[in-house]
Design a protein around this nucleic acid. Sequence first.
DNA 1: CAGTGGTCTAGACCACTAT
DNA 2: TAGTGGTCTAGACCACTGG
Lengths: 236, 236
Amino acid sequence: MVKYQQIADEIEMYIEENALQQGDKLPVLEGLMAHFNVSKSTITKALELLENKGVVFQVRGSGIFVRRHRRNGYRSLLSNQGFKKELEDFHTASKVIELEVTKPAKEIADHLNIELDDDIYFVKRVQYIDRQILCLEESYFNRSIVTYLNKEIVSESIFDYIQKGLGVKIGFSDVYLHAGKLKEEEAKQLCLESEEPAFYVESVFYLTSGQPFNFSKVTYNYEQSQFFIQTNGHFS
Amino acid sequence: MVKYQQIADEIEMYIEENALQQGDKLPVLEGLMAHFNVSKSTITKALELLENKGVVFQVRGSGIFVRRHRRNGYRSLLSNQGFKKELEDFHTASKVIELEVTKPAKEIADHLNIELDDDIYFVKRVQYIDRQILCLEESYFNRSIVTYLNKEIVSESIFDYIQKGLGVKIGFSDVYLHAGKLKEEEAKQLCLESEEPAFYVESVFYLTSGQPFNFSKVTYNYEQSQFFIQTNGHFS
DNA sequence: CAGTGGTCTAGACCACTAT
DNA sequence: TAGTGGTCTAGACCACTGG
């Protein structure tokens, strides 16, 4: 792993372990350079990572400060939780409803940029958190990239397996969000009534090369659907 | 404006004007360095901006490619649209329902990090897009930062005025999302039935100094609530 | 005006891709 | 193995904050 990534991790761990709060000041650049024995740019790059991740904010002429969000029970929509995840550790589980090799519908083929007669893995499962139903997930994998899946893998973290087991490198993703009314079949799986609200998240995941390898539709129980995002951007 | 920002803007305009598509290749770093007559790091920084904005992706050993998302009718949740916004130009409007100086409830005071007897501006309005009702917005401003608002300002873009008129510099924001059932009063304003689905977005906006100055709750008509986000991150 | 973060450079070297 | 992007350095200079 590269230096600036290690440094970013160390700083984040430091913040976590010492339970620093919003506004707490970190050592100045000069100090961090000396402590990690690297050049200014390397520290800057590490802090930039943390800034994009919503862990710190930097104020020119003033210092580097810890950033926190205010609410519990909200999950990071972009699941870049880092270290916190391990600390909180919810009880999670999933029930596999379907797992098969099949052919894609047009919508799926379009999103995965493949042909209608190419093979895909189709996975359908319900995910639980703290013994409560969290979501219904339908996921489609380009089989020429994700070459093998079985029930065991699919009842754990699929993405962990894909990265560590298959060595696939994930580059980026497009995420689409909307709210709507539950259809009857979805409601049944989530133990809710049809017509009740639902929070829909559809995603396309790409390799570092830019090739899409996964499309997924996730329907959240609206009572569990609490997400947060931390932004830095340029505000129009 | 700094060099890397100008360069990023120019590259984005180039992509937009030439209507480049997903996967189209941009000139190599060497070429861009020569064309803009700057050092490698400056180009790298510009491309990093565009990468974070979801405009391009870079593949080591291969090149720099254009990134697009697939769906129309979805708004960027983080409204960093840049140039596209001006091209599409929807007809937008807003109806101001309330505008007053008042005192914050506890929840608001907490989010704005102020006292219960500090002054705030409270703004309530309905926003329209293409003559359709888009959302109901309730917004609270720390009055010691946002010192003045009137009906005219509030029926246009408040944030534009705050930045350009008051010279306030926005640093970052926390965004909270969830789905739920419309309350009766919300439903009335959105011309929907109560109990129908709603897409809720709550945000806290901070100055570059880290001080919060605005808290807002936005209730979207679920039929209009289609958002996208483009991510790059490290996937756990 | 001292202290602190941000921009920019020139150049060395590394890691991955494509052929 | 040539071509391309990524990391890292050392140092100059700039821009903002806060006493």
